[in-house]
Write a protein that binds this DNA or RNA. Structure first.
Length: 553
RNA sequence: GCGCCUGUAGCUCAGUUGGAUAGAGCAACGGACUUCUAAUCCGUAGGUCGCAGGUUCGAAUCCUGCCAGGCGUACCA
């Protein structure tokens, strides 16, 4: 619709120029937008204002000339007005909106999808929590955001892969193995002084017990490199299995689980590092190996291999991201907790140093989640092993509520997650507010079917939708594709949840004011047509956010 | 010190990438269920968009400088 109006304006400008009414023949880009204030029409353009300079004319005068030259058959506009400093406001006839409903009914859950991604390969990597303990609430937010962003990009025509990166190498895995081994030897009756730097959580003891049952006491008889390694391997497997289960309950399914260790086992790490050394991007200093990140915008150079010969986490990440691009991804998106933001500079530098454009690597930073219960902070200490896990949250408030709430905030803002509020089935809780729309409409459809009402309103002629609430609803539905595209481009899923809340509010208002099922068959069919379109868009949007659309509540 | 994020109604937050009179929800007050689900709706009230400059027809939005809070600033991850 916007494109159509923009074309009409451009045609008008050309016509005016040909008649000599406008001096300048090269025109600015025509931008058509929907004003926030409904009194300013359904669409508006600032074209006259931005053209004032090149045309050397007052904006209102340009606007008038354009309006006079507008070629339109009267089917679209009820009126065209010039307002304020020189805006041109377009008021559409109600019927002009009806094709939106047809499109929704035709495309159903595809409505709003697009092809601007042109099939380009994109990878979204998210959660990627260390396999040293269960997922907690913060990971839940990352999971919800990453999954929704991936869904949005897929919906907009990208070829998307969701990946989980398993940090199954390095020091923290050694620590994990040691923690399990120590707990195991406790279980067989040894006196153990459990160190502070080991993982304190109760799950470590559970894993030790399982391993003890499986392998017997001799594993814990004497601490050896092999014994600790075996503990580490077993624990990692167990924890990953748990993480995978939690994520499945949270309705997040990854296309690929990528092991950090595999980079070393396959020799990819060695290959990439020596390649970078040959290119002079890596150099030795103070017994360590350094990457020249400072030549690519980072504050300083960074260590990739420590003086003791151990590669840093950064070294793995260089190899890992190289590997991603070698797999053919055009763009690589990482979803990180905001506390990792200091890392962006060096990894971006590394990506650029390896010959890729910096725009091909994007990081979505997700700010902290503050867990509350009834307004009071819930104490969380990973060190002491006291934290509320994602599984606990799912048990208590459910996947739908948790996911939706995680997506009700810009990722740049910290999020207060109140467990009490998330459980409440009231207006305070936006999930139910939106889902309720779907349930209500489903109920109407069921009732209509019961009464034997079915059929297309268009069979009997035109739609009869002309109350202000109905027109407003259709206009809102019309905005959905634009919202989705914007959300995908900006990688900001919260735009969709806010849209859904707005659509829900408009529907509830309509529902309270007008009856869908009535004695007038033609009117009833028209309204069913509208209401079904609303239901489809709600279902559509909730699906992108990974939230279910219940038919009953 | 430097870097990133944030600052909008009493509270929690949106704000279509520079547009017109800055919007929701909660909390407060007053109303609406014999009719498709009251997990809903309608109404009233609430603002120096952190502060000060600048850019221009036009700024919550862009630039500069301050102020406040969070996070980061490892040969940790």
């Amino acid at each position: 619709m916007k494109a159509r109006i923009a074309r009409l304006i451009l045609d008008a400008a050309r016509a005016a120029h040909d008649k000599g009414q406008l001096p300048c023949g090269s025109f600015e880009e025509v931008v058509v937008e929907t004003p926030k204030n409904e009194q300013h029409g359904d669409f508006a353009t600032n074209f006259a204002l931005v053209s004032a300079r090149s045309q050397k004319m007052p904006p209102r005068k340009i606007a008038q000339i354009l309006a006079d030259n507008l070629e339109e058959d009267g089917a679209l506009f009820a009126s065209v007005k010039i307002a304020g400093p020189g805006f041109i406001n377009f008021y559409l006839r109600p019927e002009a909106w009806y094709p939106v409903l047809e499109e929704i009914h035709r495309r159903r859950l595809d409505y709003g999808s697009s092809t601007f991604g042109r099939g380009r390969k994109v990878q979204v990597e998210f959660v990627s929590s260390n396999p040293t303990g269960p997922l907690h609430v913060g990971h839940g937010r990352g999971a919800a955001v990453g999954d929704a962003v991936a869904n949005l990009l897929d919906f907009c025509g990208y070829d998307v892969q969701k990946e989980y990166y398993i940090n199954d190498s390095g020091r923290q895995i050694q620590t994990l193995g040691r923690s399990v081994w120590l707990r195991g030897s406790e279980l067989i009756g040894k006196q153990v002084d459990f160190p502070e730097d080991c993982y304190q959580g109760a799950y470590i003891r559970d894993i030790a017990r399982q391993l003890l049952d499986k392998k017997g006491e001799q594993l814990f008889a004497e601490q050896s490199r092999e014994a600790v390694m075996e503990c580490a391997r077993f624990a990692t497997e167990q924890i990953i299995r748990g993480i995978r289960q939690d994520l499945e309950r949270f309705k997040v399914v990854f296309d690929n689980w990528f092991s950090e260790q595999s980079l070393y086992d396959s020799g990819q790490y060695e290959r990439i590092i020596s390649h970078l050394e040959q290119e002079g991007l890596i150099y030795p200093k103070d017994d360590a190996l350094w990457f020249k990140t400072s030549s690519f915008g980072d504050e300083k150079d960074r260590v990739v291999v420590r003086a003791n010969g151990q590669p840093t986490y950064f070294a793995s990440d260089i190899a890992y991201h190289r590997n991603k691009f070698e797999r053919g991804f055009d763009t690589v998106i990482d979803v990180w907790g905001a506390d990792h933001h200091g890392y962006i500079g060096r990894l971006t530098a590394a990506v650029e140093a390896m010959g890729y454009r910096r725009e091909q690597f994007k990081v979505i930073l997700v700010q902290l989640v503050n867990l509350l219960r009834g307004g009071k902070p819930v104490a969380m200490s990973t060190r002491a092993g006291e934290f509320v896990t994602l599984a606990d949250v799912i048990d208590e408030v459910g996947t739908d509520a948790a996911r939706f709430i995680f997506l009700t905030r810009d990722t740049n803002s910290p999020l207060d997650f109140d467990l009490e509020l998330a459980k409440q089935k009231s207006n305070d809780n936006p999930v139910y507010y939106v889902q309720y729309v779907h349930a209500r409409i489903s109920s109407i459809m069921a009732k209509a079917a019961e009464k034997g009402i079915d059929g297309q309103p268009s069979e009997n002629g035109n739609l009869r939708l002309d109350t202000p609430e109905e027109i407003t609803l259709i206009k809102t539905l019309a905005r959905y594709p634009e919202v989705v595209e914007l959300a995908a481009r900006a990688m900001e899923p919260h735009r969709v949840t806010f849209f859904l809340m707005e659509l829900a509010a408009r529907f509830h208002a309509y529902y309270n004011k007008h009856r869908v099922l009535g004695d007038d068959r033609e009117l009833t069919l028209s309204r069913l047509h509208l209401v079904e379109a609303v239901r489809l868009v709600i279902q559509n949007g909730l699906k992108l956010m990974g939230v279910s659309a219940p038919t009953q509540m």
